[in-house]
Design a protein around this nucleic acid. Structure first.
Lengths: 239, 239
DNA sequence: CTGGAAATTGATTCCAGAATCAGCGCGGAG
DNA sequence: CTCCGCGCTGATTCTGGAATCAATTTCCAG
């Protein structure tokens, strides 16, 4: 694994080797978690996968939970950071949305197993686990919601939409899209398929939000409450 | 918790009482699972919640897994059935889509805790568990995909869209929408909020798929592979 | 070279909690 | 009224696996 482009070779200081080990164990954990699930695997499995003694795992991680926590943190962190960066960019909402979707699908392309763990495993951390699916998703969703809100102020997005709900839908599409890959519903590692999925998700979502009617007549059922369409709408939009 | 308001009546036959017990335990399981999660709770907790002896749980369910399985089956089953019914109805794709979303949100309104368990807990059934999130979602998604495909044949939906992906996005929006309620991101039991969410999800999604362009130019980043933009539209966008 | 500190090992301990089982008592049949 | 059997009970047993720890090896400084 050590593709750590070590210039010459040898003199990894203690600290270096230590960090290395840590990384090896972390990688092994991702692998094993993605294969058998957090609860379905033993620390022993992780140790074996890492080619390391059982006890060493405990040298680097306080306990199994902390291991999961670390796996999650290292993975989610990068993702969150990249998404935040896109959100803060000064661009049209459509561009930023595209970029966010791109980041997510790119992450999947780079390391499907890690994405699988993030999507499937994290979130079931025992009560009190500080980092869990809930708070994690909250973070991105809140951030994205702010982005949409700002877009509304700029007039790039219809005012009648709930920004938080927009964010929710965006990540819902992304998550489920990736889930269907992870689950094999859509089929594995077809790069073209990934691209196609990404583009359809992006464009469908964008077209949906930029042109959605303020809850038109709903033949389905349910009396609608709320939201007098104060701002007739953004120009362009469909048809 | 025995709010089983059994004032006078008594003469339930053996069989009745038996079925009753089973139901009581099942309800208790939903309650406990939703509160502490499948792995985070003990059979003892379920027994206590049901006001029943520890051993009795094993009288009605072979083991803990089967208990979860039953909880899932009873919940998912109803949902799947109702969705299937809507899918098979002979109506315009928009109407059917609205109905599906409606079913999902109505289920949440009726029993949020059950929905929470379905969304959050099921899916990690130990290796081999027949019923799990994967196969479950597969089922609805495949069914919905057929619906979209048929809609395309009828000309109710642009032909360039991948039907499976449409289904994926639809349930992605639904799931994440409900998740945000379950998680409290959007806030609890506000009936109006539920309605609003349902409508926005529905209309945004519908508008998105019925009018989406086939992957336009992407100013964002990422050199897009695939999809020669035959229709170079979607002007607005970037900067 | 040498001492000892840190890294590494895996057998051992310990325990949560699943699953079992030997009765108990209620309610219905005779 | 009495006796039988089955729904029901919960203490007891058993197990898998997390966490510990004493022993061993590796590595570096002096």
């Amino acid at each position: 694994m050590a593709e750590k482009a070590q210039p010459a070779k040898k003199p990894q200081s203690r600290a270096d080797r230590e960090a290395d080990r840590r990384r090896v164990i972390l990688r092994a954990a991702v692998e094993v978690f993605s294969r058998k699930g957090y609860h379905g695997c033993r620390i022993q499995d992780v140790a074996k996968e890492a080619g390391v003694a059982y006890g060493l795992v405990y040298h680097y991680f306080k306990n199994k939970d902390e291991l999961l926590e670390s796996v999650f943190a290292s993975g989610w962190h990068g993702f969150l950071g990249r998404v935040q960066a896109e959100i803060l960019r000064d661009q049209h909402i459509a561009a930023r949305t595209r970029a966010i979707v791109h980041v997510a699908f790119e992450a999947y392309r780079r390391d499907p197993r890690a994405v699988k763990v993030l999507i499937l495993e994290v979130g079931r951390s025992p009560a009190g686990g500080a980092v869990n699916r809930g708070s994690a998703f909250s973070e991105v969703i809140v951030a994205a919601a702010q982005m949409f809100e700002e877009a509304q102020r700029r007039g790039e997005l219809p005012a009648h939409l709930d920004p938080t709900l927009c964010a929710t839908m965006l990540f819902g599409c992304i998550e489920m899209g990736l889930t269907s890959f992870v689950m094999g519903i859509v089929d594995k590692r077809d790069d073209a398929a990934i691209d196609r999925a990404r583009d359809q998700v992006t464009e469908t979502f964008l077209h949906g939000i930029t042109g959605a009617q303020p809850a038109a007549a709903a033949p389905a059922s349910a009396p609608r409450a709320v939201e007098p369409p104060s701002k007739p709408r953004l120009p362009r939009t469909g048809h």
